[in-house]
């Protein structure tokens, strides 16, 4: 298509040149005369007009090419700017999504707490004070309890000793039954400990 257009164009544009050539050949055969010279000048001026048009056409084409190149550059810069903006927006989207995920987790944790209902800070501090006092009281009770327990142990040991003493006085070792029983148990189970025998006797 383009070649055909170019050829048709050239056929039109070659006309003044061919005309000039034919005129020059004609002039060569004729004698030199003022009229002939003027005609020849006219033909050359026509050719110069043709060339002038071609030059102007080239200038116009160059001008248009500059315009289109400018538009192209503008478009390319616009595309680059848009691409950078898109990439930045994507990064922001990822950050926002991560933040959203965290917020969702926080919401899941906060729901049961919020459902119970909240109290003011002063009330919270008062309750904390009360709890601390309760803790302190419990610790004191614990200490007292330990002392009481130790005291009871000592008393119990003393009573056991006295009991053993009374038993030795009242009942001499001459009873065979009691001795045999006690002896069997002590020998078999706990030969080394003497307190266990006392427990069993009771």
């Amino acid at each position: 298509m383009e070649e055909t257009a170019i050829r048709s164009r050239l056929t039109v544009e070659e006309r003044p040149l061919k005309r000039l050539i034919s005129r020059c050949l004609g002039f060569a055969a004729q004698n030199v005369d003022e009229a002939n010279l003027r005609d020849l000048e006219i033909e050359f001026s026509a050719l110069s007009a043709f060339w002038l048009r071609l030059q102007m056409q080239l200038d116009m084409n160059a001008k248009e090419v500059d315009v289109y190149e400018g538009e192209l550059k503008k478009t390319q810069t616009f595309c680059e700017a848009e691409k950078t903006e898109i990439s930045q927006l994507e990064q922001d989207l990822l950050v926002a999504q991560e933040e959203l995920r965290k917020r969702e987790q926080y919401d899941e944790l906060a729901k049961p707490i919020m459902s119970k209902g909240l109290r003011s800070r002063t009330e919270q501090q008062e309750s904390i004070g009360k709890l601390q006092d309760a803790i302190r009281e419990l610790e004191e009770e614990n200490a007292n309890y330990v002392k009481a327990w130790n005291l009871r142990k000592d008393i119990f040991d003393e009573t056991l000793k006295q009991m053993n003493h009374l038993q030795s006085i009242l009942h001499p070792p001459s009873n065979p039954e009691s001795d045999s029983e006690e002896g069997i148990a002590s020998e078999g189970e706990n030969p080394s400990s003497s307190s266990s025998t006392q427990y069993k006797a009771k």
């Binding site: 006219i42 001026s45 007009a49």
Partner: peptide, 8 residues
Amino acid sequence: HNSTEFET
């Protein structure tokens, strides 16, 4: 002088 000159 002639039509060619006029056109030019």
